[in-house]
Every structure is written in C-alpha cells, then in structure tokens.
Design a protein around this nucleic acid. Structure first.
Lengths: 120, 120
DNA sequence: TAAAAATACTCCATAGGTATTTTAT
DNA sequence: ATAAAATACCTATGGAGTATTTTTA
C-alpha cells in the first residue's frame, strides 16, 4: 500500500469515476483502473460496486472503511510535506471564473489564492 | 513521499545506521543510502547529522520532526492493512533464542507469537 | 585500519502510456 | 448508441542490486 495509490483511490471516490479522476490526477484512465484493481487484490476486498448500480461508482462497505483511513493517512502526509515546505498553516489553490481551459472557452479571470492561518 | 521510504527512514532511525537497517528491511545499504538522500532532497532538509558526531547516526531537528510524523503515518497505514487482513487487534512476530541465521550458529529455538487484544 | 556510508554503474520490475474491446445505461 | 471501465500490450522511469571508493572514529 502506497500513498500514491491511496491518493488515486480518494480521487476516484471524489470524482465518482475513473475518467474524471484520471483528468484531475493527470494520469490515464487505464492506469487508474489497474492501480485500483491491484489495490483491491492486495487488500483482498472489493472497494467499488461494479456495474448494476448507478454510473457514479459506489463504494462498498470495505471501500467506505478505506476511504476514511486513506483520508487520515493522506492528510497527515500532506501536512508533513507542507511543514517541510515551510507552509504550515497555509492552504493554497486557484479559482477560475469563466470555465476550464479544456472547454475551449474564453478565460475571463483567474487568481492564485493563499489562505494563511495562525494554526491548522 | 511514499510509505515505503518512510518505513526505510524509521528503520534507519531505529537501527541507528544504514547497514543494520538494510538487513532488517532485506534491502541493500546503497539502496537505503540513495532513498534517504532522495527523501532529504525532496523535503529540502538534512535528516541526519553527517560525520563529525557519534557513529550511530544522529537526527537533526528536521529529522526528529519527520520521525514523529512518519511514525503516525506508518502506524495508521499498518492498522489499515491489518484491518483488511481481518487482523484487527492482532500483533504478531517471532522470537528467536540462540542467535540469527546469519551468524552460522545453531538455532536453539524459535516461535511464532501472536498477541490478540480486544481493542487496539 | 576497520567499520559504515557514499558513488558509480547496471538491471529490471512495474508504473504509466496507447489502442482496443467490453460493458451498461 | 454512447460514455465509461476493462483488457492487452508496450515503454520507460526509477527502485534496487553489485562493485568499489571514500569517509571517520
């Protein structure tokens, strides 16, 4: 079990599907498909409900358990990395107004955003 | 940052040296040397006090910070893996009396040990 | 000078990619 | 019929090994 794969898993849960997650992660859909399959094999557990049900992949009970654990682990790792970047107490990201670059729309405005907090 | 490397790091801290840690981890000393160096580069921080001081590698302040965080992360990951093995609340390992197999000594006795707890 | 760590290479396992098929709505 | 996931196959990055050379107590 590696952090990279846990991040993949969380992205798939978040985006409710491999394709959407693969875009967010900048990897291809088959890569995700394989990594999640390997993870399921490694843990000996089905994480998602396949087929049948609604398109947006649904978590099994095991999947739900892993989601909670993975979130804790990944968050801890990210905070640790942030600490070494001297970015303790800092959250940053970006906001875009006018749609993403993939839709071929005119970009109206965007901004880099940094929230600095006394404590996290 | 990956769990594998955090485990390497903790082993080096624990064994106070690359060579001893490499034996415990069943990897070679240069592999550890490189992985830890990469980790230091990635974090932009020296983790161990080089040379000068006492042989048993000493942690820097950054190293000490990482040790605490890494322990949390790795323990969480191990508990998660254990949960999927249906081994919640179980600790196992082995005890050997008479020296390890590498010393060419006669093996006097060993035992697989499992501690089962109601809650962990 | 005798350990342990660092360096220099080589190799290979596997993460990741492309192309395609299968599945399910 | 169509959009997403699975499968097959290939490529290549980097993890890990062997051999050797610094280090430093």
């Amino acid at each position: 079990m590696e952090l990279r794969v846990l991040r993949y898993f969380l992205a798939v849960v978040d985006e409710r599907g491999y394709t959407a997650a693969s875009e967010r992660l900048h990897v291809t859909q088959p890569t995700l498909s394989r990594q999640i399959a390997d993870l399921e094999r490694e843990l000996g557990a089905e994480l998602f409900v396949r087929g049948k049900h609604g398109r947006p992949l649904e978590l099994t009970e095991d999947g739900e358990l892993l989601r909670r654990r993975a979130e804790e682990i990944v968050v801890l790792a990210e905070r640790t990395e942030a600490a070494f970047r001297g970015n303790e107490g800092v959250l940053s990201g970006s906001v875009t107004v006018g749609g993403g670059e993939t839709q071929g729309m005119t970009l109206l405005a965007d901004a880099a955003v940094t929230l600095r907090a006394a404590r996290l």
